[in-house]
């Protein structure tokens, strides 16, 4: 028999990388920026975090380094989209390609080494899992109850109006992009430091893209992101369980499950947004548009 509580704890761990990345991207998108570079920031976080943890022997230092690396690697994207008015879709893609390449380039020396052990937190779960869960209400509070969050949402809904009110649209967006990068970095580092326990090239395997889909699924709310991350954690855990149980389906087909689930969920939620009365769903009004202040 499968113990449901043990399964839920596994789910919490499995959903953590995507939870971090998707919460970060949620803030970025609420500020009106679509950053498709999540995968690139995650893999850079996975590498920098792992390397720092390995050489320092301190996993928490690794996560701090991963946050820094994620924010830094997002810098070219921020400059391109905020100062050079580049297309956000293309710039995000460039960030993903660049991050994957850079991580592969600098990852060679730490291939095959082990991650340091981490002291487990309550219920035997990693502290980072708890941090991720705590981030959900924190970000909800920031977006819905704080003044800074209100400004951020204003910038995302209508950047021209926010600009006219005297808010610095670029500054808000730069901060949001850096935060999104840091969160994606921590999410990536969780995969390398706490899940796989080593570094392999391309190890994020699309988690960044799944995180992007979850933001759509969440209807741009923090609790929605949590629900989405748990859904995918659940599918992942179930799929691994089925593999372990020796179900007569090829492993390669079972491992498609998270990606197919992403598509199905994305379609379901897009359909609801499309056919609901409020056109455009809950997407921020200025999402993905260039901001160029003429005055």
């Amino acid at each position: 028999m499968i113990d449901p509580i043990a399964l839920f704890l596994l789910l919490l761990s499995a959903s953590t990388p995507i939870l971090f990345a998707a919460l970060g991207e949620l803030v970025v998108e609420r500020a009106g920026v679509l950053n498709l570079g999540v995968e690139g920031m995650m893999i850079m976080g996975a590498l920098s975090g792992f390397a720092t943890a390995h050489y320092s022997g301190n996993a928490f230092l690794g996560f701090a380094a991963a946050a820094l690396a994620g924010a830094l690697v997002a810098l070219p994207f921020a400059i391109l989209t905020q100062f050079l008015m580049s297309n956000q879709v293309a710039s995000g893609l460039a960030l993903t390609l660049f991050g994957l390449g850079l991580a592969a380039l600098f990852g060679k020396p730490v291939e095959g080494v082990k991650a340091p052990t981490m002291a487990a937190g309550p219920l035997g779960l990693n502290w980072i899992v708890w941090l991720g869960l705590a981030m959900v209400p924190a970000i909800w509070w920031f977006l819905n109850r704080s003044r800074a969050g209100l400004i951020l949402r204003g910038v995302g809904e209508n950047h021209d109006a926010a600009h006219a009110l005297g808010y610095d649209v670029r500054q808000v967006r730069l901060a949001a992009i850096a935060f999104g990068g840091a969160m994606a970095g921590v999410g990536g580092a969780f995969i390398s430091i706490a899940t796989v326990l080593q570094w392999t090239e391309g190890m994020t395997a699309g988690a960044g893209w799944i995180a992007l889909a979850i933001v759509v699924f969440s209807n741009w709310t923090a609790p929605g992101v949590l629900a989405g991350a748990w859904l995918f954690g659940g599918v992942t855990v179930l799929q691994l369980r089925l593999q372990a149980a020796g179900v007569r389906v090829p492993v390669q087909l079972l491992s498609m499950a998270p990606y197919l689930a992403t598509i199905i969920v994305l379609v379901a939620i897009s359909a609801r947004q499309k056919f609901s009365r409020r056109a455009g769903g809950a997407a921020p009004g200025s999402l993905g548009q260039d901001f160029h202040a003429l005055r």
Binding site: L36, A213, V216, Y259, L266
Partner: peptide, 13 residues
């Protein structure tokens, strides 16, 4: 049919 983002769907595929 459903307004799903072709970016994410094509990438997942």
């Amino acid at each position: 049919w459903f307004g799903a983002s072709e970016i994410l769907v094509s990438l997942m595929l």
